[in-house]
Design a protein around this nucleic acid. Structure first.
Length: 330
DNA sequence: AAGATAGGCAACCGCAGGCAG
DNA sequence: ACTGCCTGCGGTTGCCTATCT
């Protein structure tokens, strides 16, 4: 464990690297009898060939009798996430709310588990807000699976039928977009079957009818460069049908808004010349980081996502960004 | 079965702040 | 006011282990 430099002794002849059981025993023995006193003086008094700092770390992070070891409970997880939302990387401050847990342990747990978990849920681990960069789009199905109803229930966010229906609706959209060619997906979204099942007037998901049309148009635009590039009119000449072969008239050429130009689109995602898959570390959108003062928690952010006004802008962001990026589902 | 890769985590590094002389 | 020591803290490293190919 830990680092073991090629030379395990520093220039002063003091040992570094992993502690042996014998060293542990000596340190515990000494502190139990005398207390730690001055950490700098301790190793000499205890007969350890370590620096005081190393002894202090070993004691506070591992040997202290009140340390609770083992897996973090779900309650501890939520405490850490909520405290991190308000305190940031103040691990020692967070640790004071979790008896028996050390700041080091919490920090490690955050970096290895919770951070990834939030990213998978589409939540920026820095701002604790929903991520609006396009990098989450390929993960949306997983996002939905991760941010399942159980998680949402645990947040004490009241979920009424409309909220649950929205989640279901979003899930349906993702399924369609993720498993079918774009045109078919568009036909489905625009078709009577979908509309009948999801009364947009009552359950808007933040989409006004004209916004749905805009989404359809934008999706058309972004599909074109990736596959063979037919003229837009080629699309227009195709009958727009849903999965039941019902023709849907609203996407006739006259109804489709003109394609947005690049200059009309907001530059929300940092330009990436090669669009290479980004590692999770690089996934953090600097735009999102720009709001470190956010005081709402991750789960409140999910509440925002479920809120009509908030979701308006959230969905619009995604639509706009989708327009400026090649389609990730292909 | 063996090598490669990723995940987990203990321990180290270096900086900052408090305090005493 | 300055200096040096001590401690606390957050970031980072690198070894060990589990999983994947």
């Amino acid at each position: 464990m830990g680092r073991l430099p090629p030379c395990s002794r520093d220039e002063n002849g003091l040992k570094k690297g992993p502690w042996t059981p014998e060293e542990d025993r000596i340190l515990v023995d000494y502190i139990q009898r005398h207390g730690h006193g001055s950490w700098r003086a301790l190793p000499k008094l205890a007969g350890l060939n370590r620096c005081g700092k190393s002894c202090r770390l070993r004691w506070t992070n591992y040997l202290r009798p009140d340390i609770k070891r083992g897996r973090f409970s779900e309650e501890e997880e939520h405490t850490i996430i909520n405290l991190h939302a308000s305190l940031g990387n103040k691990w020692s401050a967070i640790a004071t709310h979790l008896p028996g847990r050390t700041d080091n342990e919490i920090k490690n747990f955050w970096n290895t588990h919770l951070r990834k978990k939030l990213l998978q849920m589409g939540i920026d681990p820095v701002t604790h807000r929903p991520r609006t960069d396009l990098n989450i789009l390929p993960n949306l199905p997983q996002l939905l699976a991760t941010a399942n109803f159980t998680n949402l229930m645990m947040t004490n966010i009241p979920l009424d039928a409309a909220h649950l229906a929205k989640l279901q609706l979003l899930h349906n959209i993702i399924q369609v977009l993720g498993t079918t060619p774009t045109m078919e997906a568009l036909n489905f979204l625009a078709g009577p079957t979908f509309r009948e099942n999801h009364q947009f007037s009552n359950l808007s998901l933040g989409f006004a009818p004209q916004e749905l049309t805009q989404l359809q148009s934008n999706l058309l635009n972004l599909e074109a460069p990736q596959q063979h590039q037919p003229e837009v009119t080629e699309y227009h000449n195709q009958p727009m049908k849903d999965s039941n072969n019902h023709q849907f008239p609203s996407l006739s050429p006259a109804n489709i808004p003109p394609p947005l130009t690049q200059s009309q689109l907001p530059a929300l995602v940092p330009a990436s010349p090669e669009r290479r898959p980004q590692t999770e570390n690089k996934n953090i959108n600097p735009i999102n980081i720009s709001n470190p003062s956010s005081t709402s928690t991750t789960f409140e952010a999910w509440g925002d996502l479920m809120d009509d006004e908030e979701s308006d802008s959230y969905w619009r962001d995604i639509i706009d960004q989708a327009s400026s990026q090649p389609w990730p589902f292909s």
